[in-house]
Design a protein around this nucleic acid. Structure first.
Lengths: 119, 119
DNA sequence: GATCTATATTGACATAGGTCGATCCTGGAC
DNA sequence: GTCCAGGATCGACCTATGTCAATATAGATC
């Protein structure tokens, strides 16, 4: 019988891993989520009745300085998780709906139970 | 009529934002996902037929040094995304099924469309 | 125009994090 | 026991990042 007992360490692939480009794109977004302040910012925006929050809402929710909040907002905006709109003196931030939904769809795709065919 | 036109910047809250502790926990895991190498590692493990990959599978998939891969594996293990098991000379890594599934569940919960009541 | 307020940008600082070479540890083969 | 191979740990390096005070910008009001 031609089956080697334990001389082989590696097992065959059943699917396609992420390629370099895709993993780099995803990592950018996950990295933006990898900060507790930014996660709270997102949840505060989402928790607002009309789906938007102005910067004053956000600075009031933290003990951090206003430039720090502004920096985090920029990070979230740069990766496409937030958009901003100026109205009168204030700037309002909203979630980008597709963005978080896509991420949420990616994660199960990596799971063996749900992401692959025969399981 | 007692409604102020635009002198108010802030809007009322409709839900509960993440608290400090929860956002810190989540941020740890998202931070671990915020690296392209670690994302590829996860996807490589998930892509293997039996749901596990040994370190030699992983080092072979990158041009990085073996200590660097080992470091990334430790990060993923520390946040509970991977488990490891030694068999003979090799160490095999598997995904922790619940871990990614929970994350995937958290993201839509932050979205206004699906996470809140009346939308 | 001048002035005030809300937000963004800049620059500096300290800490965190990714990478490597060198070394250590562990298990199998001899 | 010795030796070797797979993998983890250590220490050093450099870059990235979170934070702040100071400053700049934009809009509203006067």
């Amino acid at each position: 019988m031609p089956d080697l007992p334990l001389l082989e360490c590696c097992s065959p692939l059943a699917g396609e891993p992420l390629d370099d480009q895709r993993s780099a794109e995803l990592a950018r977004v996950f990295k933006a989520l990898g900060d507790p302040v930014r996660l709270r910012i997102l949840s505060i925006v989402a928790a607002h009745e009309n789906g938007e929050a102005c910067v004053c809402d956000l600075t009031a929710a933290f003990t951090l300085s206003q430039p720090t909040i502004s920096h985090h907002l920029k990070v979230l905006k740069d990766v496409g998780l937030l958009t901003s709109e100026r109205r009168a003196s204030w700037v309002y931030y909203r979630l980008v709906p597709h963005a978080l939904a896509e991420l949420s769809a990616v994660l199960p795709a990596v799971l063996p139970e749900s992401g692959r065919a025969g399981r």
